[in-house]
Amino acid sequence: MIEGLVIGLVALGFLFSLSGAVGIVRMPDVYCRIQCSSKSVTMGAIPTLVALVIAEGPVSTYGSRALVVAGLLVILSPTASHALARAAYKAGVPMWAGAMRDEPHDQTSTKEAG
């Protein structure tokens, strides 16, 4: 029971991590790649760590460290992605040619017009 749950969670995490890595290689744009890496952390790394916690128990040495790492990743990874996307936008990295909207640019231009 526990064994099957652990194996299922690890397989789920690995599948999402693999799709995130393939997305980082294959996506056409910086912003799409940032989104792929964020998904890879949230749905890929967290189930893997939860699998380690379930396998070892939450109060054991390995399980508690896995919980600490999971909390760090949950808090810090979206912040890093946001800072990175903001810096890339401010440095003027071009968007993909098929992108539909440039929302920050639209907001500033409407504010200037109004």
């Binding site: 995130g20 980082i24 910086v30 940032i34 890496s37 790394a45 990295v93």
Partner: peptide, 14 residues
């Protein structure tokens, strides 16, 4: 660009 490489490096560290 440099930003692509930063994304890859960050994911590598994770």
């Amino acid at each position: 660009t440099v930003s692509d490489r930063i994304v890859a490096l960050n994911t590598m560290a994770t």
